[in-house]
Design a binder for these strands. Structure first.
Lengths: 210, 210
DNA sequence: GTCTATAACTCGATAGAC
DNA sequence: GTCTATCGAGTTATAGAC
């Protein structure tokens, strides 16, 4: 078996990388149970045996992919949440970058959430990254602004959850929303593009002191 | 095979009902692919053969369960959205009943969303109910209030999506939120109970004119 | 490293006794 | 109606040639 150092990235067009990319596509769309090794092999343009040659088992391959997905999501949140900048700017930037990441990778949140639900043990034991974003600084900033009377009183945890929900959910539940709103795909596309501005405006309006 | 009239409810403690309940649990947690007939049989306290005796195939059993879940979700939304009442009251009631349903059935939205993603054809063809809630009346009300200067201008579709997102997402993504906020299950429970009040307050604040 | 062939296993479904 | 036993399709995983 190819013993691969985790720290060294495999070459872009190596078989190993092609397998990983194919697995990424299939797992992120169908989850662990729905994904089939045959489909991954087909997409990678190789045969099943090679999957096992590079990544011993389906389980192992899955873990690799799942970790990569998680890391992407986590670093996007941390990027903004932990930086030093004025609250309003932080909120604007958070919404913008977060919606950006999600809209370019719609499957991420659904993947994470589904897999936590189906296999919580595995998820927390082997997939969740060690160093999660710390929202502490953000909470302190909110408290400070409230104390200074520059924003309406609100529990900072709820504010964060409000924002994340409005950023993520419309993309996760896109087909549902489309049906409810009676929008065809093209119109839905336009609608989702407006979200960044709409969410920002909504949040800032809700925070304006009485 | 037992020919069951769809209109007549089977007795509460009948084998048929026990199977349905077990299937409901397992399917709602693991989806179509993740669910195993053996597990359903075990939970129902019977053997696999009986599942097929009552519900010909896994697919059929799944459809029954999925339709029941969908109907529950849909009727909850319609209940409030289509009734005649002042906008502020409607918003309050919508948030309250919607969070109520979701918190008593956390799995519903995730189930719907995952299954749409994995098997869109089946979902739209055989599971989605015919008569979906019509948000039209709600949209008109919002436009009217804006015209009268009683609320800040906002696109009604976005308002509805904001509200739904803030109601649903924290429950769907509960484990993720708990990790991010660093809350243990008990604290998370308390936190989610506060959502009704917090979301209501937030939305009304964001709509206040000027 | 990559392939073909096949073993080993999982799981939905059916046959047939009671 | 309910059970045990088993079939057969589909899937993961391995053996072994090249």
């Amino acid at each position: 078996m190819a013993k691969r150092s985790t720290t060294t990235e495999p070459a872009i067009d190596s078989t190993e990388q092609k397998i990983f990319d194919a697995a990424h596509e299939v797992f992120s769309q169908k989850g662990m149970d729905g994904a089939k090794m045959q489909e991954i092999a087909d997409r990678a343009g190789i045969n099943k045996a090679l999957l096992h040659y590079y990544y011993r088992s389906k389980e192992k391959l899955y873990e690799m992919v799942a970790r990569a997905i998680l890391n992407k999501a986590v670093s996007a949140v941390r990027e903004v949440l932990e930086k030093e900048m004025p609250l309003e700017e932080k909120i604007r930037r958070f919404i913008e970058t977060y919606i950006g990441v999600i809209s370019r990778n719609t499957f991420i949140p659904l993947f994470i959430i589904s897999e936590i639900n189906k296999h919580p043990e595995r998820f927390f034991a082997t997939i969740l990254p060690q160093d999660l974003p710390k929202p502490h600084l953000f909470f302190q900033q909110v408290e400070a602004e409230i104390a200074a009377g520059r924003i309406r009183p609100i529990k900072p945890q709820h504010l964060l959850v409000h924002i994340i929900s409005m950023c993520v959910f419309p993309f996760v539940g896109k087909p549902m929303m489309a049906v409810l709103l009676g929008m065809r795909p093209a119109k839905m596309q336009t609608f989702l593009k407006e979200r960044t501005a709409e969410v920002t405006q909504f949040v800032l309006a809700a925070l304006r002191p009485q």
